[in-house]
Each structure stands twice: as C-alpha cells, then as structure tokens.
Design a protein around this nucleic acid. Sequence first.
RNA 1: GGCGACGUAGCCAAGGGGCCAAAGGCGAGGGUCUGCAAAAUCCUUAUUCGUGGGUUCAAAUCCCACCGUCGCCUCCA
Length: 455
Amino acid sequence: MIRITNTFTGKKEVFKTLTPNRVKMYVCGPTVYNLIHVGNARAAVVFDSFRRYLEYRGYSVTYTQNFTDIDDKIINTANKDGISSKALSDRYIAEYFKDACMLGIKPATFHPRTTDFVKDIINFIVDLEEKNFAYSKNGDVYFDVSAFKSYGALSHRNPADMRAGSRIEINELKDDPLDFTLWKAAKPDEPEWKSPWGEGRPGWHIECSVMSSVLLGDSFDIHAGGTDLIFPHHENERAQSEARSGKKWVSYWMHNGMISIKEEKMSKSIGNIFNVREALKVYGPNALRVYLLSKHYRSPIEFSSERMEEAKAAYSRITNALYEIERKIGNEFKVKKDAFTEEWRAHMMEALDDDFNTPQAFSVIFELVKKALSSDKKEELSQIKALFFEWNYFLGFDFSKTEKSADEFVEQLVNLRNDARARKDYAQSDKIRDTLQKLGVEIRDLSDGTHWRWN
RNA sequence: GGCGACGUAGCCAAGGGGCCAAAGGCGAGGGUCUGCAAAAUCCUUAUUCGUGGGUUCAAAUCCCACCGUCGCCUCCA
C-alpha cells in the first residue's frame, strides 16, 4: 500500500489509481534556454526514481515530462544571440538529454514541447471562452479567476487575501489582478501563431494543461514539480483544466523541496546556480544521485561541497560492499525465493511505500552493507548482492564504475618515466615505455617535451 | 503584511502518541590488519529531540505561545 503526501489536501493519502495497475503521471520539466542546474535535476531524478519504483511495484506508468519552449527568457536569449527561439530550445533540449542520460534518468513516455501543441492550446482557450471562463482584450486572452469557485484550493490561499497583497502586478487590461494570461498578443521580435484573437503566442500556464489533456486525458493520477510551482503555476493549471472539463484534474499533487546554496534558494534569476554538467564533472553521477535521494524529496536541502563529499563517501561505502562481496564469493547470484530476501525486500518497500521515504531506504541499504562486510555466509552475501541489483532498478546507480578516463593515469606514468630518464635510469624508463606500448599508448619524445597518444 | 514548512548528536538526516535510553550517513576517537603508509574492517560517539507551558496512564511525536531558519505571494524544479 503506497502512500503519498498530496499537496492539495496537505495529507498523506493512500495511493489509488484511476485505472487498476496503471499510473498516469505528469512532471513539469525545464524551460530550455540554458543548461539545467541541480535544482532542475532534483525534480527530474526524484520523480524519475519514483516512477521506476511504481514500475517496480507492478504499475504500468505513462510518464510525461514537458519542455517549455515558448517563454520570455527563451525569446530574450535567442534575440540576444541572434538565433531563433526554436534553434535555442532545440540546442538546450539536446543538452538536457545529455545531462539526463548521465544522471541515469529513464526517458519519459512522452517529452512534449509547447510549440508542437499550439493548435491544441488555441482550441483549449476557445473552449474556456465558450464556457465563460476566459475573456479577450486587445488580442490578449485572460482567465477569469472569479468564475472558478475553488481558485486557491491547491495553494491554500484565498483570492481575497491575495488581492489585498501589494505584490500583484497592475495590468489595466485585466478585470481582476488575479486573472492570468492564456494568450498573449504578438509583439515585434517574438514568435507568433495565428489565432481567433489575432497573431500571438500562448501564455505560460496553459501548456501543461493542454499537453496533459491531449496525452493523458482530462484526469490523471499524479502531477509533480517543485514547490515553487504551486503558486501560481499549478493553481492556474488546475483552474483552467477543471474549468474546461468539469472533472477533477489530478488525484495526487507531489512537490519537491528547493535546493539552496548558503541558505538561499538556487535559482536562475538569482544567479547562484550550479550546473548539472559541472556537478557531474566534479562529483560524478552516482554521488549526485546519493545526494539527491538520501534526503526526503519534500525537504529543502543545501548544495555544498561538504554535502557532496559526504554523498560521495556514502556511495563509496556501497560499492565497497559490492567489491567485498565479489571478493568473497565471486560472481554468484542468488535469485531464488528465500526468507532473508523477502524480509529485506519488505523493509525496503515499507520505506518507499511511505511517501517515497528514500532516506529510510538508504538506511536499509546501509544495514545490509554492514551485514555484507561482516558476514562470511556465502548464501547471505549473494542474497544481498541480488537485492542491491534488484533495487538499482529505481536507485539508478551506474555500478560499472570507470568514471575517470585513463588519461591521467597515462600522464602519471609518462611523468614517472621522465623522472627515470632524468636520473639516467634507462632500464626503468624503457620498461615503462614498453608497458605503455603494450597498453596501446605511443610515446613521442620531442624537443618540446614528451607527448603521447592512444594508438 | 498574508499563506505555508521546518528546528533531532560536531555536521547531514529518518522517525511524527507507547516497539525510541531515537535508524542511517559523514566526521571524530580507539582497536585489528599492514615493512611503513594508505585502503579496508570492528567498536565507541543524543537518558535526549529550539524554548516555555498544556493535553494524556504515556509526547521527539498532539495543542498553545515564544524564539529562530527557510519557501511562496513576480519568472523559477
């Protein structure tokens, strides 16, 4: 029995799917105008891992993660670089997949992008207009918040409080400051599409509603994203979706906590971002996954070299256990049903069934690590190894190691050889050269020093 | 100003009425192993859960107040 903390109710609830054994899930993906940062990676890794856990538990999961490729920042960046928005977003979607692949994230069932759904977006807005949930002014179309009675229910705010707040932008075209844009009239230097309201482009919130309705239907099981999306993004999505279909849109809302750097949220606008690309280079994918999964997904966490070194050390403890098991029993693998495996599998599921409690899951893993290191029972050791590989379906580590290229080792050997040459120990230096040669490294002593290449 | 979350050992972090004299990781201290070292390994490391009240037979866990930290209310995972 899986339980999930649902932002909508604020409670942990038993997970029941709309269709038995099937889960339809939608995760808000990145806006593609630069490389993703570790905050983006958290949502991607956590929900991918959760998705795979659901699969492990026997569900068939339709997983959708979008790319926002129409957006002010994309347009601005593209204009600044003198390229089209499309070229810019194409580039960063490709970069996203490189990072996701390095992080061990499984591709989604669907990776929709906004620009492929503009027709559907227009139809969706027309529906809203027909149902009197939207109105147009000067080529813009706005959602009428007052027409949707439960507006604010997801983010637990009430519209009156928000109107009283001073931070809502004043826009004369809106009937109500809370109303939000569904369609924006065209401006110079912006991509535009034909619509019943003239040339223009979609607003931000509309895309997820539309793409999910096309790909998953009017109702689906899980909608996930960062806590910073709860308001206004998800609130608005919910309003327009339910206004249009008249049905409950999402059963469970899951939101991951933010990553901060020195007590301040990591965000593109603050500029204190740490690229996934950079983090991968410095710490490697496995340490990054430990870092992201060893804290509960809903808690805010801090990104720092201390935390990453810690994660790296923790991961190393796991691989050390695998190494020790292999040393003791070779490559034996136990897959038959037995009490020990059942017991520990139950511990793992108990942890993850409870709102995907990955810290607890790691606790289970490290208890087994300890067992593996202190035990000499071959049977047990092979059972532990089998469990680790079984669980890796959702933990997603790359146990194949070789995170470092061999280049720097060659470099060091070349240096050692040159040390030997310097003291005229040619027996030693030639020995090193011969060894390298056998390994496929060609040494070239030139006037400006020693060079080498892979042969 | 409004709404929400959080405060557990040196650090990170589970637990969310009795099974808790509180899981796990990092670090630290000691032992084993080792030519020396490193690595590895074993053991130890919170009578206590921000502070003060309250509810209860029983509270880290529920309620109230206070202090502190963070997030959202504007684009953001």
